[in-house]
Amino acid sequence: MKRGREIVGIVGKRKPDSVCKTSQRFDRMVNKKNKVKGNKDIGLSVTSRNKEVNLAQSETNQAMTNEQLIEQLTSANPDAVVKQGSQYPEITVAHDKLHAFMQNIKSDSSLAFDYLVCETGVDYPEFIQVVYHLESTSHRHFMVVKANTENRETATLDTVSDIWPTAEFHECEIYDLLGIRFNNHPNLRRYFLDDTWGHPLRKDFHDDIHVVER
């Protein structure tokens, strides 16, 4: 079995230092060790951290404003509904175009929505809506994508778990609580409840035994 573990060198005796922070202690430890063993590939050095933060901040500057984002999304998806929501740009995508659209906004380098923050199902009278909160870790802009199922009875939607792996688990949760079946999902199972339950977050869910209504 491959183990990425190396024998750690001598830590040695250090002077007691009352305001010695963990990181500093550790930096010193690593530096010392690197010197002793000439071992560069431990990679635990913390000096590159600040660089990375600066990088993240400089990238932030390229973030699109909400207006630019809306403009670009509207021109690229003429049949989708794009509007400025109460906080973030919101786009409603047709359910059959969802997967292609999602793939596009992740791979497009000017959008690069690579972080799926949250996936929510909301039950409305005619359809069930799935809301995706997306953020780009390089540009730091934020967007909300919505997709409606065709109807409530046979609610299906394409999975996005091949685009963002975290969606796999959020989709299981939505399936459990709202009963949306996700096409092509690798392992759609109920997380919280067993099969004797309905889908409790639907508005027409009634349970006389477990739910006391006031």
Binding site: G4, R5, E6, L44, D114, P165, T166
Partner: peptide, 22 residues
């Protein structure tokens, strides 16, 4: 050292995976 040997290099999560898995 005993603690460090138990944790160093164990269970590495790359940056890309961290973003992808949220």
């Amino acid at each position: 050292i005993i603690f460090q040997n138990r944790t160093k290099g164990v269970g590495v999560l790359s940056k890309e995976d961290a973003i992808a898995f949220g």
